[in-house]
Nucleic acid binder design. Structure first.
Length: 113
DNA sequence: GAGGTGACTGCGA
DNA sequence: CTCGCAGCCACCT
């Protein structure tokens, strides 16, 4: 709570997202206790490029499953490529079956379908 | 110290 | 499902 900024906590949760799964900003915010402040999570992602090890921000999308932050990856197609590389289908800047691959930090794991 | 910004969310239509 | 409005809090200048 001192040296570790709110961002660090967000990075930790995002790095816990299993491969082939995605998460929403609100879910992370609620998990951190900042329920209702999903903007802070998105803001943390803006600085995720400064965090190390790198944060899989491409697995984090908004409530609708839209790749709203794809432009922050340097290339607008990079986020889409990374998601498809993990088996996630993306179309029209949107994740297909978003609710099917949605991963909640509260579950930490399991949810094995 | 104050103001502005933003990779969001929930509700109603 | 999507669109628009308003609220929310930490970081930067």
């Amino acid at each position: 709570m001192d040296t570790f900024s709110f961002y660090e906590q967000v990075y930790q949760v995002v790095r816990l997202i299993p491969r082939g799964r995605v998460c929403s900003y609100g879910a992370i915010a609620s998990f951190l206790g900042s329920k209702g402040s999903a903007r802070m999570v998105g803001y943390a992602m803006n600085a995720s490029h400064t965090a190390y090890p790198p944060v899989p921000a491409h697995r984090v999308v908004n409530r609708k499953g839209m790749l709203t932050g794809k432009f922050h990856f340097g290339s607008p197609s990079l986020m889409e490529q990374l998601l498809e590389n993990e088996g996630i289908k993306v179309q029209n800047d949107r994740i297909l079956d978003f609710k099917e691959i949605f991963w909640d930090p509260s579950l930490e794991c399991e949810t094995d379908i």
